[in-house]
């Protein structure tokens, strides 16, 4: 006889014993026992008179709490230069290995962020991200923050790997699309301390010379708005 057969024998012997089931729950009184079959309706009735908690998503979108950990955003300085320096500290901090960064040198022709270094490739894989926010804590230039956007689903795996252009903050009023030179006479330190507050004419001139069709130039704003429409 094999082990399995033996176990089966033992089980059958035990099941053969005529044992009655004893519940551990407190026993109800006679009235309770009588109403037990319809007790559930009581709960339903009670909730008729309470405020509803159902959210009408996606027809009505409720804003989450201000500090909700949503999709990431790569911020910009006031003149439009990117804050990300491609240091990879976010990738280092990430417990889910969801971030991939490749850096490169800023050159006079291609100044993307203040200083010597910028993030050339920046990807966050939202299939891996656990929204813990450790990357935000690690970021030395406060380039990476989290938005409240929570609609992160999609039909493809590729589509859920967000590239740099998907993550970059939109250009606000008065910002100039990078690359363009830093404000003359400033260092990356000045940028970091918030001493750079607006685009200066040297930067506008540079963009006019190198990218005359740039939509974020003030003179192209009307055209760009029309195109957007």
């Amino acid at each position: 006889m094999s082990d399995a057969d033996e176990t089966w024998e033992v089980n059958r012997a035990r099941d053969g014993k005529d044992e009655t089931f004893e519940s551990n729950l407190p026993k109800k009184g006679p009235l309770g026992q009588a109403f037990a079959p319809v007790a559930g309706f009581g709960i339903t009735l009670r909730n008729f008179f309470k405020p509803t908690v159902t959210e009408q998503y996606p027809r009505v979108k409720t804003p989450p709490m201000p500090r909700y950990h949503g999709r990431h955003q790569l911020n910009r300085y006031a003149d439009g230069l990117e804050k990300c320096i491609g240091c990879e500290l976010c990738a280092w901090a990430c417990p889910a290995d969801a971030i991939y960064v490749e850096a490169d040198s800023n050159t006079p022709d291609n100044q993307v962020s203040p200083g010597e270094r910028y993030g050339r490739v920046y990807q966050i894989n939202y299939l891996r991200c656990i929204f813990c926010g450790l990357c935000i804590e690690a970021c030395p230039t406060r380039a990476l923050t989290m938005t409240n956007e929570y609609e992160l689903a999609g039909p493809t795996r590729e589509g859920l790997i967000y590239e740099k252009q998907d993550l970059l903050a939109p250009l606000e009023e008065g910002m100039l699309q990078a690359p363009h030179p830093m404000v003359p006479g400033t260092t990356d330190g000045d940028y970091y301390r918030g001493d750079v507050t607006e685009v200066v004419k040297e930067q506008l001139e540079w963009v006019r010379t190198n990218r005359p069709d740039e939509p974020t130039l003030p003179e192209n704003a009307a055209l760009a708005a029309e195109e957007a429409r």
Binding site: A91, W92, E102, D104, S105, R117
Partner: peptide
């Protein structure tokens, strides 16, 4: 090698 990578990569 400038700015190409980090040791942990």
């Amino acid at each position: 090698y400038r700015f190409r990578s980090r040791p942990f990569d």
